[in-house]
Write a protein that binds this DNA or RNA. Sequence first.
DNA 1: CGGGATCCGTTACGATACTG
DNA 2: CAGTATCGTAACGGATCCCG
Lengths: 211, 211
Amino acid sequence: MPGKTYDQYCGIAAALDRVGDRWTLLVLRELAFGQQRFTDLKAGLPGIATNLLTERLRALEADGLVEQRELPPPAARTVYALTHDGHRVLPVLRALSAFGQPFLGEPQEGRVRHQVAASALTTRFDAASARDACLTVLLELDGHDVVVGVDDGQLVRPGPGMREDVRVSGSAAAMMRWVRGSSLADVEGELEVSGTRAAVRTFEKVFDLSR
Amino acid sequence: MPGKTYDQYCGIAAALDRVGDRWTLLVLRELAFGQQRFTDLKAGLPGIATNLLTERLRALEADGLVEQRELPPPAARTVYALTHDGHRVLPVLRALSAFGQPFLGEPQEGRVRHQVAASALTTRFDAASARDACLTVLLELDGHDVVVGVDDGQLVRPGPGMREDVRVSGSAAAMMRWVRGSSLADVEGELEVSGTRAAVRTFEKVFDLSR
DNA sequence: CGGGATCCGTTACGATACTG
DNA sequence: CAGTATCGTAACGGATCCCG
Protein backbone atom coordinates (compact mmCIF):
# COMPACT_ATOMS: atom_id res chain seq x y z
CA MET A 1 0.00 0.00 0.00
CA PRO A 2 0.80 3.55 -0.11
CA GLY A 3 0.31 4.77 3.40
CA LYS A 4 -1.32 1.93 5.27
CA THR A 5 -4.48 -0.06 5.64
CA TYR A 6 -7.73 1.81 6.08
CA ASP A 7 -8.51 -0.61 8.88
CA GLN A 8 -12.28 -0.26 8.80
CA TYR A 9 -14.86 -2.98 9.16
CA CYS A 10 -16.23 -2.45 5.65
CA GLY A 11 -16.06 -4.52 2.51
CA ILE A 12 -15.09 -1.57 0.36
CA ALA A 13 -12.25 -0.61 2.67
CA ALA A 14 -11.07 -4.23 2.83
CA ALA A 15 -11.18 -4.42 -0.96
CA LEU A 16 -9.21 -1.21 -1.36
CA ASP A 17 -6.65 -2.48 1.13
CA ARG A 18 -5.93 -5.24 -1.42
CA VAL A 19 -6.46 -3.61 -4.80
CA GLY A 20 -6.67 0.10 -4.08
CA ASP A 21 -3.06 1.06 -4.71
CA ARG A 22 -2.03 2.92 -7.79
CA TRP A 23 -1.53 0.54 -10.75
CA THR A 24 -2.90 -2.50 -8.93
CA LEU A 25 -6.27 -2.61 -10.67
CA LEU A 26 -4.62 -2.03 -14.03
CA VAL A 27 -2.27 -4.93 -13.38
CA LEU A 28 -5.33 -7.04 -12.67
CA ARG A 29 -6.96 -5.74 -15.86
CA GLU A 30 -3.98 -7.00 -17.84
CA LEU A 31 -4.17 -10.39 -16.15
CA ALA A 32 -7.90 -10.50 -16.81
CA PHE A 33 -6.97 -10.68 -20.49
CA GLY A 34 -5.06 -13.89 -19.75
CA GLN A 35 -1.69 -14.90 -18.34
CA GLN A 36 1.14 -12.49 -19.05
CA ARG A 37 4.89 -12.31 -18.78
CA PHE A 38 6.52 -9.53 -16.80
CA THR A 39 7.43 -7.80 -20.03
CA ASP A 40 3.92 -8.10 -21.44
CA LEU A 41 2.57 -6.47 -18.29
CA LYS A 42 5.08 -3.68 -18.54
CA ALA A 43 4.13 -3.14 -22.18
CA GLY A 44 0.44 -2.97 -21.31
CA LEU A 45 1.06 -0.49 -18.51
CA PRO A 46 2.99 2.38 -20.06
CA GLY A 47 4.56 4.52 -17.41
CA ILE A 48 4.83 1.95 -14.61
CA ALA A 49 8.25 1.64 -13.01
CA THR A 50 9.64 -1.89 -13.01
CA ASN A 51 10.15 -1.93 -9.28
CA LEU A 52 6.54 -0.93 -8.74
CA LEU A 53 5.31 -3.66 -11.04
CA THR A 54 7.39 -6.17 -9.10
CA GLU A 55 6.08 -4.88 -5.81
CA ARG A 56 2.45 -4.95 -6.94
CA LEU A 57 2.80 -8.49 -8.24
CA ARG A 58 4.36 -9.65 -4.96
CA ALA A 59 1.59 -8.01 -2.95
CA LEU A 60 -1.08 -9.61 -5.13
CA GLU A 61 0.62 -12.98 -4.76
CA ALA A 62 0.76 -12.53 -1.00
CA ASP A 63 -2.98 -11.86 -1.02
CA GLY A 64 -3.60 -14.95 -3.13
CA LEU A 65 -5.07 -13.06 -6.06
CA VAL A 66 -2.24 -13.68 -8.52
CA GLU A 67 0.17 -16.55 -8.98
CA GLN A 68 3.33 -17.23 -10.92
CA ARG A 69 3.29 -20.16 -13.26
CA GLU A 70 6.23 -21.89 -14.88
CA LEU A 71 5.78 -22.70 -18.53
CA PRO A 72 7.49 -25.51 -20.45
CA PRO A 73 10.69 -24.31 -22.14
CA PRO A 74 9.36 -23.75 -25.67
CA ALA A 75 8.02 -20.42 -24.42
CA ALA A 76 9.22 -17.78 -22.03
CA ARG A 77 9.65 -19.27 -18.63
CA THR A 78 7.38 -17.63 -16.13
CA VAL A 79 4.01 -15.99 -16.47
CA TYR A 80 1.63 -14.35 -14.06
CA ALA A 81 -2.05 -15.26 -13.89
CA LEU A 82 -5.12 -14.64 -11.78
CA THR A 83 -5.80 -17.29 -9.16
CA HIS A 84 -9.25 -18.70 -8.59
CA ASP A 85 -9.81 -16.05 -5.93
CA GLY A 86 -8.35 -13.43 -8.19
CA HIS A 87 -11.12 -13.93 -10.69
CA ARG A 88 -13.46 -12.36 -8.17
CA VAL A 89 -12.14 -8.92 -9.15
CA LEU A 90 -13.66 -9.21 -12.60
CA PRO A 91 -16.98 -7.64 -11.55
CA VAL A 92 -15.03 -4.75 -10.04
CA LEU A 93 -13.18 -4.23 -13.30
CA ARG A 94 -16.43 -4.40 -15.24
CA ALA A 95 -18.11 -1.85 -12.99
CA LEU A 96 -15.13 0.49 -13.28
CA SER A 97 -15.09 0.07 -17.01
CA ALA A 98 -18.78 0.92 -17.25
CA PHE A 99 -18.29 3.93 -15.01
CA GLY A 100 -15.33 5.13 -17.04
CA GLN A 101 -16.74 4.71 -20.54
CA PRO A 102 -18.44 8.13 -20.68
CA PHE A 103 -15.13 9.83 -19.98
CA LEU A 104 -13.54 8.36 -23.09
CA GLY A 105 -13.48 10.36 -26.29
CA GLU A 106 -14.22 9.07 -29.75
CA PRO A 107 -12.20 5.96 -30.51
CA GLN A 108 -9.53 6.53 -33.10
CA GLU A 109 -8.74 3.87 -35.62
CA GLY A 110 -5.64 1.96 -34.63
CA ARG A 111 -5.46 3.40 -31.13
CA VAL A 112 -7.85 1.00 -29.38
CA ARG A 113 -6.53 -2.22 -27.88
CA HIS A 114 -8.69 -5.13 -28.89
CA GLN A 115 -9.00 -6.30 -25.28
CA VAL A 116 -10.27 -2.89 -24.29
CA ALA A 117 -12.97 -3.02 -26.94
CA ALA A 118 -13.95 -6.48 -25.74
CA SER A 119 -14.06 -5.26 -22.16
CA ALA A 120 -16.23 -2.34 -23.25
CA LEU A 121 -18.65 -4.84 -24.74
CA THR A 122 -18.96 -6.82 -21.52
CA THR A 123 -19.79 -3.54 -19.85
CA ARG A 124 -23.14 -3.61 -21.59
CA PHE A 125 -24.05 -7.10 -20.45
CA ASP A 126 -27.47 -7.07 -18.89
CA ALA A 127 -28.11 -9.98 -16.56
CA ALA A 128 -31.84 -9.38 -16.54
CA SER A 129 -32.14 -9.79 -20.33
CA ALA A 130 -29.74 -12.70 -20.33
CA ARG A 131 -31.92 -14.93 -18.21
CA ASP A 132 -31.15 -18.54 -19.20
CA ALA A 133 -29.27 -17.40 -22.30
CA CYS A 134 -26.31 -19.40 -23.60
CA LEU A 135 -24.09 -17.94 -26.26
CA THR A 136 -20.52 -17.95 -27.44
CA VAL A 137 -19.28 -14.90 -29.30
CA LEU A 138 -16.01 -14.74 -31.16
CA LEU A 139 -14.70 -11.23 -31.59
CA GLU A 140 -12.07 -10.91 -34.29
CA LEU A 141 -10.74 -7.42 -33.68
CA ASP A 142 -7.80 -6.15 -35.71
CA GLY A 143 -6.98 -9.76 -36.37
CA HIS A 144 -6.97 -10.85 -32.72
CA ASP A 145 -9.52 -13.34 -31.42
CA VAL A 146 -11.33 -12.70 -28.17
CA VAL A 147 -14.04 -15.03 -26.97
CA VAL A 148 -16.91 -13.83 -24.82
CA GLY A 149 -19.41 -16.29 -23.45
CA VAL A 150 -22.78 -16.25 -21.76
CA ASP A 151 -23.77 -19.39 -19.95
CA ASP A 152 -27.00 -19.81 -18.05
CA GLY A 153 -27.47 -16.06 -17.95
CA GLN A 154 -23.98 -15.43 -16.58
CA LEU A 155 -21.07 -13.77 -18.30
CA VAL A 156 -18.17 -16.22 -18.51
CA ARG A 157 -14.69 -16.54 -19.94
CA PRO A 158 -15.11 -19.68 -21.98
CA GLY A 159 -12.35 -22.15 -22.51
CA PRO A 160 -10.95 -22.70 -25.98
CA GLY A 161 -12.48 -25.16 -28.37
CA MET A 162 -15.98 -23.74 -28.13
CA ARG A 163 -17.69 -23.31 -31.41
CA GLU A 164 -18.94 -19.75 -31.73
CA ASP A 165 -22.58 -18.86 -32.28
CA VAL A 166 -21.80 -15.34 -33.39
CA ARG A 167 -18.70 -13.91 -34.96
CA VAL A 168 -17.96 -10.20 -35.09
CA SER A 169 -15.06 -9.12 -37.28
CA GLY A 170 -13.55 -5.70 -37.77
CA SER A 171 -11.45 -3.11 -36.06
CA ALA A 172 -11.41 -2.60 -32.32
CA ALA A 173 -12.28 1.05 -32.89
CA ALA A 174 -15.39 0.11 -34.85
CA MET A 175 -16.43 -2.30 -32.10
CA MET A 176 -15.92 0.49 -29.62
CA ARG A 177 -18.09 2.81 -31.68
CA TRP A 178 -20.86 0.21 -31.84
CA VAL A 179 -20.74 -0.37 -28.12
CA ARG A 180 -20.68 3.36 -27.44
CA GLY A 181 -24.00 3.87 -29.08
CA SER A 182 -23.74 3.83 -32.81
CA SER A 183 -26.23 1.68 -34.62
CA LEU A 184 -24.96 -1.32 -36.48
CA ALA A 185 -25.83 0.52 -39.68
CA ASP A 186 -23.46 3.31 -38.69
CA VAL A 187 -20.52 0.95 -38.46
CA GLU A 188 -21.52 -0.98 -41.53
CA GLY A 189 -18.63 -1.86 -43.73
CA GLU A 190 -16.38 -1.71 -40.69
CA LEU A 191 -17.91 -4.57 -38.73
CA GLU A 192 -19.16 -7.85 -40.04
CA VAL A 193 -21.56 -9.79 -37.85
CA SER A 194 -22.29 -13.39 -38.74
CA GLY A 195 -24.26 -16.21 -37.19
CA THR A 196 -27.78 -17.50 -37.26
CA ARG A 197 -30.48 -14.88 -37.08
CA ALA A 198 -31.57 -16.15 -33.67
CA ALA A 199 -28.06 -16.14 -32.25
CA VAL A 200 -27.41 -12.60 -33.47
CA ARG A 201 -30.71 -11.52 -31.99
CA THR A 202 -29.76 -13.02 -28.63
CA PHE A 203 -26.37 -11.35 -28.84
CA GLU A 204 -27.90 -7.93 -29.44
CA LYS A 205 -30.45 -8.42 -26.70
CA VAL A 206 -28.01 -9.59 -24.05
CA PHE A 207 -25.59 -6.73 -24.73
CA ASP A 208 -28.32 -4.21 -25.46
CA LEU A 209 -26.97 -3.45 -28.94
CA SER A 210 -30.12 -3.40 -31.03
CA ARG A 211 -30.28 0.11 -32.29
CA MET B 1 -4.18 11.92 -8.48
CA PRO B 2 -1.05 10.74 -7.01
CA GLY B 3 1.41 10.93 -9.85
CA LYS B 4 -0.65 11.73 -12.85
CA THR B 5 -3.28 10.41 -15.20
CA TYR B 6 -2.81 6.93 -16.63
CA ASP B 7 -3.67 8.41 -19.98
CA GLN B 8 -4.85 5.22 -21.65
CA TYR B 9 -7.82 4.74 -23.91
CA CYS B 10 -9.57 2.38 -21.52
CA GLY B 11 -12.66 2.76 -19.38
CA ILE B 12 -10.96 1.33 -16.31
CA ALA B 13 -8.03 3.72 -16.62
CA ALA B 14 -10.39 6.66 -17.18
CA ALA B 15 -12.40 5.61 -14.13
CA LEU B 16 -9.31 5.33 -11.95
CA ASP B 17 -8.17 8.74 -13.16
CA ARG B 18 -11.30 10.10 -11.45
CA VAL B 19 -11.80 7.87 -8.44
CA GLY B 20 -8.57 5.89 -8.11
CA ASP B 21 -6.79 8.08 -5.59
CA ARG B 22 -6.40 7.03 -2.02
CA TRP B 23 -9.54 7.89 0.03
CA THR B 24 -11.58 8.96 -2.98
CA LEU B 25 -13.77 5.86 -3.18
CA LEU B 26 -14.30 5.93 0.56
CA VAL B 27 -15.42 9.55 0.34
CA LEU B 28 -17.90 8.44 -2.30
CA ARG B 29 -19.01 5.59 -0.05
CA GLU B 30 -19.83 8.08 2.67
CA LEU B 31 -21.79 10.22 0.24
CA ALA B 32 -23.58 7.14 -1.03
CA PHE B 33 -25.16 6.97 2.42
CA GLY B 34 -26.63 10.42 1.83
CA GLN B 35 -25.50 14.02 1.97
CA GLN B 36 -22.89 14.78 4.58
CA ARG B 37 -21.21 17.72 6.20
CA PHE B 38 -17.46 18.09 6.14
CA THR B 39 -17.28 16.95 9.74
CA ASP B 40 -19.51 13.94 9.12
CA LEU B 41 -17.21 12.86 6.32
CA LYS B 42 -14.18 13.27 8.52
CA ALA B 43 -15.84 11.22 11.23
CA GLY B 44 -16.67 8.45 8.78
CA LEU B 45 -13.14 8.36 7.44
CA PRO B 46 -10.90 7.90 10.46
CA GLY B 47 -7.34 8.78 9.62
CA ILE B 48 -7.91 11.11 6.69
CA ALA B 49 -6.12 14.43 6.87
CA THR B 50 -8.43 17.42 6.59
CA ASN B 51 -6.46 18.91 3.73
CA LEU B 52 -6.73 15.66 1.81
CA LEU B 53 -10.46 15.51 2.38
CA THR B 54 -10.75 19.04 1.06
CA GLU B 55 -8.63 18.22 -1.96
CA ARG B 56 -10.60 15.07 -2.76
CA LEU B 57 -13.89 16.91 -2.50
CA ARG B 58 -12.64 19.68 -4.80
CA ALA B 59 -11.42 17.16 -7.36
CA LEU B 60 -14.72 15.29 -7.26
CA GLU B 61 -16.58 18.57 -7.69
CA ALA B 62 -14.37 19.47 -10.65
CA ASP B 63 -15.25 16.12 -12.22
CA GLY B 64 -18.95 16.71 -11.62
CA LEU B 65 -19.41 13.71 -9.36
CA VAL B 66 -20.02 15.61 -6.13
CA GLU B 67 -21.64 18.96 -5.40
CA GLN B 68 -21.92 21.29 -2.49
CA ARG B 69 -25.38 22.22 -1.36
CA GLU B 70 -26.40 25.04 0.90
CA LEU B 71 -28.99 24.13 3.49
CA PRO B 72 -31.51 26.50 5.06
CA PRO B 73 -30.18 27.98 8.32
CA PRO B 74 -31.92 25.68 10.84
CA ALA B 75 -29.19 23.13 10.13
CA ALA B 76 -25.49 23.24 9.45
CA ARG B 77 -24.87 25.36 6.40
CA THR B 78 -23.26 23.33 3.68
CA VAL B 79 -23.35 19.67 2.84
CA TYR B 80 -21.78 17.54 0.14
CA ALA B 81 -23.79 15.16 -2.02
CA LEU B 82 -23.45 12.96 -5.06
CA THR B 83 -24.54 14.58 -8.29
CA HIS B 84 -26.69 12.74 -10.81
CA ASP B 85 -23.50 11.59 -12.56
CA GLY B 86 -21.95 10.75 -9.26
CA HIS B 87 -24.59 8.11 -8.63
CA ARG B 88 -23.01 6.09 -11.40
CA VAL B 89 -20.25 5.02 -9.00
CA LEU B 90 -22.71 3.02 -6.94
CA PRO B 91 -22.20 -0.18 -8.96
CA VAL B 92 -18.44 0.22 -8.49
CA LEU B 93 -18.91 0.52 -4.73
CA ARG B 94 -21.18 -2.51 -4.72
CA ALA B 95 -18.70 -4.60 -6.70
CA LEU B 96 -15.87 -3.57 -4.39
CA SER B 97 -17.98 -4.34 -1.37
CA ALA B 98 -18.79 -7.80 -2.70
CA PHE B 99 -15.15 -8.42 -3.49
CA GLY B 100 -14.06 -7.28 -0.06
CA GLN B 101 -16.60 -9.15 2.08
CA PRO B 102 -14.58 -12.38 2.31
CA PHE B 103 -11.66 -10.47 3.78
CA LEU B 104 -13.71 -9.27 6.73
CA GLY B 105 -13.63 -11.17 9.98
CA GLU B 106 -16.58 -12.01 12.17
CA PRO B 107 -18.65 -8.94 12.90
CA GLN B 108 -18.44 -7.84 16.51
CA GLU B 109 -21.44 -6.47 18.27
CA GLY B 110 -21.33 -2.68 18.38
CA ARG B 111 -18.44 -2.36 15.94
CA VAL B 112 -20.42 -2.51 12.68
CA ARG B 113 -21.76 0.71 11.16
CA HIS B 114 -25.37 0.31 10.18
CA GLN B 115 -24.71 1.67 6.68
CA VAL B 116 -21.99 -0.92 6.18
CA ALA B 117 -24.37 -3.71 7.08
CA ALA B 118 -26.92 -2.29 4.66
CA SER B 119 -24.28 -2.05 1.96
CA ALA B 120 -23.29 -5.66 2.64
CA LEU B 121 -26.90 -6.63 2.05
CA THR B 122 -27.06 -4.94 -1.34
CA THR B 123 -23.96 -6.92 -2.23
CA ARG B 124 -26.10 -10.01 -2.39
CA PHE B 125 -28.68 -8.54 -4.72
CA ASP B 126 -29.18 -10.85 -7.66
CA ALA B 127 -30.63 -9.11 -10.71
CA ALA B 128 -31.55 -12.40 -12.36
CA SER B 129 -33.78 -13.48 -9.45
CA ALA B 130 -35.19 -9.98 -9.10
CA ARG B 131 -36.77 -9.93 -12.51
CA ASP B 132 -39.82 -7.65 -12.33
CA ALA B 133 -39.70 -7.62 -8.54
CA CYS B 134 -40.78 -4.55 -6.59
CA LEU B 135 -40.07 -4.29 -2.92
CA THR B 136 -39.30 -1.77 -0.22
CA VAL B 137 -37.33 -2.95 2.76
CA LEU B 138 -36.83 -0.95 5.91
CA LEU B 139 -33.77 -1.93 7.88
CA GLU B 140 -33.79 -0.76 11.48
CA LEU B 141 -30.24 -1.41 12.57
CA ASP B 142 -29.09 -0.33 16.00
CA GLY B 143 -31.97 2.11 15.95
CA HIS B 144 -31.10 3.71 12.60
CA ASP B 145 -33.40 3.38 9.62
CA VAL B 146 -32.03 2.49 6.22
CA VAL B 147 -34.33 1.92 3.27
CA VAL B 148 -33.44 -0.43 0.45
CA GLY B 149 -35.68 -0.72 -2.56
CA VAL B 150 -36.10 -2.96 -5.57
CA ASP B 151 -38.09 -1.54 -8.41
CA ASP B 152 -38.74 -3.36 -11.66
CA GLY B 153 -35.87 -5.72 -10.95
CA GLN B 154 -33.42 -2.91 -10.24
CA LEU B 155 -31.82 -1.97 -6.96
CA VAL B 156 -32.78 1.60 -6.07
CA ARG B 157 -32.41 4.14 -3.29
CA PRO B 158 -36.03 4.95 -2.66
CA GLY B 159 -37.18 8.34 -1.58
CA PRO B 160 -38.78 8.79 1.81
CA GLY B 161 -42.45 8.29 2.39
CA MET B 162 -42.53 4.80 0.93
CA ARG B 163 -44.40 2.28 2.95
CA GLU B 164 -42.18 -0.72 3.60
CA ASP B 165 -43.12 -4.24 2.57
CA VAL B 166 -40.56 -5.84 4.86
CA ARG B 167 -38.98 -4.59 8.04
CA VAL B 168 -35.83 -6.04 9.54
CA SER B 169 -34.92 -4.91 13.04
CA GLY B 170 -31.88 -5.70 15.10
CA SER B 171 -28.21 -4.96 15.40
CA ALA B 172 -26.02 -4.17 12.43
CA ALA B 173 -23.71 -6.99 13.50
CA ALA B 174 -26.57 -9.49 13.40
CA MET B 175 -27.57 -8.27 9.95
CA MET B 176 -23.98 -8.69 8.88
CA ARG B 177 -23.94 -12.23 10.22
CA TRP B 178 -27.11 -13.08 8.32
CA VAL B 179 -25.75 -11.64 5.11
CA ARG B 180 -22.44 -13.42 5.58
CA GLY B 181 -24.05 -16.80 5.51
CA SER B 182 -25.77 -17.60 8.76
CA SER B 183 -29.28 -18.90 8.47
CA LEU B 184 -32.07 -16.78 9.83
CA ALA B 185 -32.45 -19.35 12.60
CA ASP B 186 -28.86 -18.68 13.67
CA VAL B 187 -29.53 -15.01 14.20
CA GLU B 188 -32.88 -15.62 15.79
CA GLY B 189 -33.57 -13.41 18.75
CA GLU B 190 -31.15 -10.87 17.31
CA LEU B 191 -33.08 -10.01 14.15
CA GLU B 192 -36.77 -9.60 13.74
CA VAL B 193 -38.19 -9.85 10.23
CA SER B 194 -41.74 -8.75 9.62
CA GLY B 195 -43.97 -8.35 6.61
CA THR B 196 -46.36 -10.48 4.63
CA ARG B 197 -45.18 -13.99 3.94
CA ALA B 198 -44.99 -13.24 0.21
CA ALA B 199 -42.97 -10.07 0.70
CA VAL B 200 -40.51 -11.78 3.01
CA ARG B 201 -40.18 -14.60 0.49
CA THR B 202 -39.42 -12.11 -2.27
CA PHE B 203 -36.91 -10.37 -0.02
CA GLU B 204 -35.08 -13.61 0.70
CA LYS B 205 -35.11 -14.61 -2.94
CA VAL B 206 -33.86 -11.33 -4.32
CA PHE B 207 -31.00 -11.14 -1.81
CA ASP B 208 -30.37 -14.88 -1.79
CA LEU B 209 -30.93 -15.15 1.94
CA SER B 210 -33.09 -18.26 2.24
CA ARG B 211 -30.95 -20.65 4.19
C1' DC C 1 16.19 -10.31 -24.45
C1' DG C 2 13.42 -11.30 -20.33
C1' DG C 3 13.13 -10.29 -15.46
C1' DG C 4 14.14 -7.85 -12.42
C1' DA C 5 17.22 -4.71 -8.53
C1' DT C 6 19.13 -0.13 -7.27
C1' DC C 7 19.37 4.72 -6.86
C1' DC C 8 17.56 9.34 -6.55
C1' DG C 9 14.77 13.57 -7.40
C1' DT C 10 9.89 14.71 -7.06
C1' DT C 11 5.31 14.30 -5.39
C1' DA C 12 1.69 12.87 -2.43
C1' DC C 13 0.32 11.63 1.97
C1' DG C 14 -0.14 11.86 7.32
C1' DA C 15 -0.22 14.43 11.38
C1' DT C 16 -1.12 18.25 13.72
C1' DA C 17 -1.55 23.17 14.53
C1' DC C 18 -4.02 27.09 13.44
C1' DT C 19 -7.84 30.41 11.63
C1' DG C 20 -12.42 32.65 10.05
C1' DC D 1 -17.84 23.83 11.91
C1' DA D 2 -15.15 24.09 7.85
C1' DG D 3 -11.54 24.35 6.36
C1' DT D 4 -6.02 26.39 5.46
C1' DA D 5 -1.05 26.03 6.47
C1' DT D 6 3.06 23.71 7.50
C1' DC D 7 6.30 20.05 7.51
C1' DG D 8 8.46 15.43 7.99
C1' DT D 9 8.00 10.98 5.81
C1' DA D 10 6.72 7.49 2.56
C1' DA D 11 5.57 6.40 -2.10
C1' DC D 12 6.12 7.10 -6.82
C1' DG D 13 8.54 8.05 -11.60
C1' DG D 14 12.40 7.58 -14.41
C1' DA D 15 16.67 5.99 -15.52
C1' DT D 16 20.29 2.90 -15.12
C1' DC D 17 22.47 -1.25 -14.13
C1' DC D 18 22.71 -6.24 -13.45
C1' DC D 19 22.25 -11.27 -14.25
C1' DG D 20 21.00 -15.69 -16.54
